[in-house]
Structure formats: structure tokens, C-alpha cells
Write a protein that binds this DNA or RNA. Structure first.
Lengths: 301, 301
DNA sequence: GTTTTATATCAATTTATTTGATGGTTATTT
DNA sequence: AAATAACCATCAAATAAATTGATATAAAAC
């Protein structure tokens, strides 16, 4: 048997009060329980911690040495107790959220701010990656929650339609299309395209809608970052197809122009959770912040 | 029942290893003991700390929150364990020594230095006061050890003859007595005396030897501090009677002169301990440093 | 000298911890 | 696809620890 918090608590109380009987009353134990706890503590470490003179009791040098350490550890155990109690009924701690790039860049910042504001003891830890990486991490338990572009069909995960994302074809201010009412499919195919690299969710939706592989387009520049693509399109190097979320500001300011195409460029943003798992208060709080957009199309939250 | 170190230890080990079985092996417990300890911890605080997916187990957000606190408290409990073990077999900590002025000023500094050197984890806390104050504090348990000038007869204390102190009559370099071979009693009585205040041990011995009350001497100046008396005697303001310990250096340098009187100016320096009390390693170490001077005249150490 | 107050100790009891056996679930192998 | 192995949860039983109530003992107060 090792040292226990209970016995340290008893030790501290006797040391401070200088009385076995008072300690018994305070800790709601019998006097003999206190006496035996001290005897046990002392016998375990070979030598006494107290000096007993008749009906008085006080610390000896070893007891004096121990007291501050014992007090500290008791305080910390109280803190732990409180922490566990609090976190069972209040969102405390850090939630690990995985998100794909567009969501992480254009949707989560404002939600994270809201979360921190509503729950000051809570925070997000965001991990960015593509849909597959993120959903795998969620399955492995390295994330608590994931938000990805497009659907996911891992059997271990529950998926919910979080929001609808719309892709838009964009051109620079001076581009010929910027005045056009609508652009035909062949014109789209013949255009100078600036696109994201293979594996990007955005690229896949674009290929589906246009019913053509990007590799089959006559004129293509590939860029790894959305912001770089926007700058390139603004500079008149070509046209592109990006999430509306990514180009909202540029469209509002007129730096980029939305091109009507008649194509169906919708995709779901999916919220993922592990199946059959208990939801902590922290997770529930996080979901409540995301809530406005969550629809039960794929499942119930 | 409250949280226990054992269960926190189990929690930490499972959290770190990610395995109930491995924890059971490491802590030499059965697998079910671990499983039940976790279940107990979780049920006490209403909500889980772990996520269980089939045969895997890992922390949820609450568990992640708890882990660092639990680790810290476990570390500290190990430190306490070590402290208690160490202090049972090795001098660790602070010993409270009470001493009267002369001893505190002229004998203890060098012994304290020796003590700190021999036992790096140990130290003295010195409290200075007159013999009565010091012996009372020792009885009350506010000191571990006392060194006083003269004997003590409190029944609760054991006393040992620590050293012999000799008082010497001193005069300044130019004083008429400084050349004399010996001074007679009447000359002593008629001299200009500089003495310590009432209650000083030094003064009492002086009165006994001379068989006269200081108040009956014709010319007396009272000074509260030994060092002040030495300066006054050096300056030729009168003669005094002080512990040889206090004037050793001045006599060696010839700044003060020892006057032969034929009086018996001896007194014991007494070491006091509480009776029938367990002696810790620290106290024994302290006694061993003081040892060279301790004689068993009054009792055995 | 008697009473009161306080601590230690003992055996008995209550409460916690631990085990061994068992069953269920998931991953791996055949 | 079935068999096997690895892992965790749960139950009842056993062990170990904490706690009590009674009693002894000693010092302080009266």
C-alpha cells in the first residue's frame, strides 16, 4: 500500500490544528481513525513525524519538512476534483477540430471566435488537411470532430450535412466574359484555366460539373493555393472555379467577376463524428456553435 | 470516497500507454482492476474520461484536460515518498536550535557552518534568548534543542554539560591593573564596573563569585550588549567581567587585558533536550556536530 | 486526589480494492 | 468466411484498507 491523499489530508489537518480530536471533528471521522492514520503514515516511513507530549501533539523536523509538500498536493487534488466536476457540467478544455482548407480559412475563424467568447474556458485546436486525411484522423481518435468538403463514407463515422457550398466561375475585371450574360460549355473548355492541384475537393466538383478531366483542357495552370489563384485571376492570367466562400470579398469589391455558366456547382460541407460515442459538454457546446448550419439530411445530431 | 492517488496513477498510465492490459502489467495488477478503477473514476465524475472503440481506448477532451494535472500530482507524490524515505535515514530539513547570547554569538556560527558542510540537506534555525525563554520554548515544542548558559531544572527536560565557560575580568590596555599580578577583593569592589543588565547569566555568575550584589557596588555602568561593554572597557571607561569566549580575540591582540583575581568564575554551558523523545536523524546529526563538547556529567546523550 | 480532556490501541465492522472467471467486440490469421 | 487472438467490461468472491466503538492510559485542570 502506498501513501494516500486521505492520509496526507489527515496529516496536514493534525499538523495545522495541533489536535487529533479537532481533526476528527473537522474531517468527520472518529478520533481513533485519525490516530491510526498518523501511526500508519509514520510506521510506513520508519520514523515519527510528530512529537507527542502527553495530550499534546506537534510536528517534529520530518513533519515540518513534509507539511508544505503535503499541503500543496492536497490543494492540487482539490483542484483536480473541481476540474472534473466542472468539466462534467460545463464546457472546459480544448476540442480538436479537423477541417479542410476552404472551411478552415473562410468559415471557422469566425466560429472559433464565437466559441471562445461564449465559452471562455474552452478552445478549438484546428487541424487542416484534405477530406481523407481529416476523416482518417477522426477515426483514429486524434480528432473530436471534422468538417470536410464533400461527403464521406467511412462506416465508423456519422455524417451530417453542415452547409451547402457553391462553386463559382470567376474572371478578372477586364476579362471578355465579364460583360457576357452566360458562357457556353465550349467557351469554358477553351478558356485559360487556373486550377488547384489534383486531390483538391474543389477541382473534383469542377470536373464533374463540366464533365471533363482538367487534364483534357487545352490551357491549364495549376496552383497550390487558393489565394494565389485569386491573385492570378485578378491579374487577368485566366479564369478559375472556386468556392463562393473564398471569393466573397473579391466579388463584393468587384476585383473579381462571377461568370454565369448554368452549371451545377453545388457540394455539401459535411460534419463528421464518430459513431455511438458519448458527447461531452465541450463537444455539445462546439456543436451548438456550429448548429445554425447543421441539417439532419444525412442523420440526426 | 474521494479521488485517490492510486486511481490517478492508473488513469495516467492508461492515458499514456493507451492500453488497459499494458497498464495492468506495468502496475502489477489484473486487467479487471484497471478497468474497474477507470470506471470508478468516470462514474464519480458523471461523465467518461476515455473513448472506447472496440479494443482501443484513448482520452476524450475531459481526459486530456485531466492528464497534466494527474501527472503532476503523481510526480509530487513520488517526491513526497522519497522525502519521507530519505529523511528517515539521512539528515534532511531544518532543526530549531535555541541558544543564549554568548553561545549564539561566539560558539554556534562555526558549528552551523560545519553542520551545513557535513549535511548539505540540513540547516539550523537559531533562536536567541535568555536561558529561561529558551528552555520554555523547548518545553513548548517550539524548539528541537537548546544551548544555554548555566544549569536548568525544568523537569520535562534532560540536561547535559556541554562545555565549561570561564568568565574573565578585563581591563583596557592602559588600566592600572594591567600591570598588577593579582587584584584583591576590595580593589575589585571599588573599581568602575561596566556590567550587563539584570537577568543576564554572565552578571549572575559574577555576583556569586564576588559575593556581592552589583547594585551594592559603588561605581556601575549598565550596558545591554557585550560588544558595547568591550568597547567601553577598551576605551578605559572601567573594568568588566565577561565570558572568555566573548573576549578571546581582544585578549589575543592585546586590546584588552585579562586580570588575575583568584575568583572562581566558571559556569556550565548546558545542552537541553525534551525527555523521552525520539531522536530523528537530523537531531542526531546535529548532536554529533555538537558532540566534542558534550559530557555526560548531568546525563547520558 | 478526583475529574476532565486528549491520545493510543485493540478487535470488529464497514468500505475499497483486487482477483479470477466470463462474455462481448474488434482485429488478424488461416 | 471462419477461426483465432487480443483487448476491454462486468460480475461475484476474496483480499486489503479504512473506520468505528470500546477501552486503556496519561497529562492537565479543578
Amino acid at each position: 500500500m502506498s501513501i494516500s491523499l486521505r492520509k496526507l489530508e489527515i496529516f496536514v489537518e493534525v499538523a495545522v490544528s495541533g489536535s487529533v480530536t479537532k481533526t476528527a471533528e473537522k474531517l468527520r471521522l472518529s478520533q481513533s481513525a485519525i490516530s491510526m492514520a498518523l501511526a500508519n503514515l509514520e510506521s510506513r516511513y520508519d520514523e515519527p513525524l510528530f512529537i507527542r507530549q502527553g495530550r499534546k501533539i506537534w510536528l517534529n523536523d520530518r513533519g515540518r519538512l513534509l507539511l508544505p509538500y503535503a499541503q500543496k498536493i492536497i490543494q492540487q487534488s482539490i483542484a483536480i476534483d473541481q476540474l472534473l466536476n466542472d468539466s462534467a457540467s460545463e464546457p472546459v478544455g480544448q476540442i480538436k477540430v479537423g477541417a479542410s482548407t476552404t472551411i478552415a480559412n473562410y468559415l471557422l475563424p469566425i466560429l472559433m471566435a464565437q466559441f471562445s467568447k461564449d465559452y471562455p474556458k474552452a478552445s478549438f485546436a484546428m487541424q487542416v488537411g484534405n477530406s481523407e486525411t481529416i476523416s482518417t484522423l477522426l477515426v483514429q481518435g486524434k480528432l473530436d470532430l471534422a468538417l470536410i468538403e464533400g461527403p464521406c463514407h467511412l462506416s465508423q463515422l456519422e455524417q451530417y450535412l453542415w452547409r451547402e457550398d457553391q462553386l463559382v466561375v470567376i474572371a478578372g475585371q477586364g476579362h471578355p466574359w465579364s460583360a457576357a450574360k452566360s458562357v457556353k460549355r465550349q467557351d469554358l473548355i477553351d478558356a485559360d484555366w487556373i486550377v488547384r492541384e489534383v486531390g483538391s475537393g474543389t477541382r473534383e466538383v469542377f470536373e464533374q460539373a463540366l464533365e471533363i478531366k482538367v487534364t483534357d483542357l487545352p490551357s491549364v495552370i495549376e496552383l497550390g493555393h487558393t489565394e494565389a489563384i485569386k491573385k492570378a485571376v485578378e491579374a487577368g492570367l485566366g479564369v478559375s472555379c472556386l468556392s463562393r466562400l473564398a471569393v466573397q470579398r473579391e466579388l463584393e469589391h468587384g476585383w473579381l467577376v462571377e461568370i454565369a455558366t448554368g452549371l451545377s456547382l453545388q457540394r455539401p460541407l459535411t460534419l463528421l463524428l464518430r459513431k455511438n460515442e458519448h458527447r461531452s459538454h465541450l463537444l455539445k457546446a462546439c456543436l451548438s456553435i456550429l448548429q445554425p448550419g447543421i441539417k439532419a439530411s444525412f442523420g440526426r445530431i
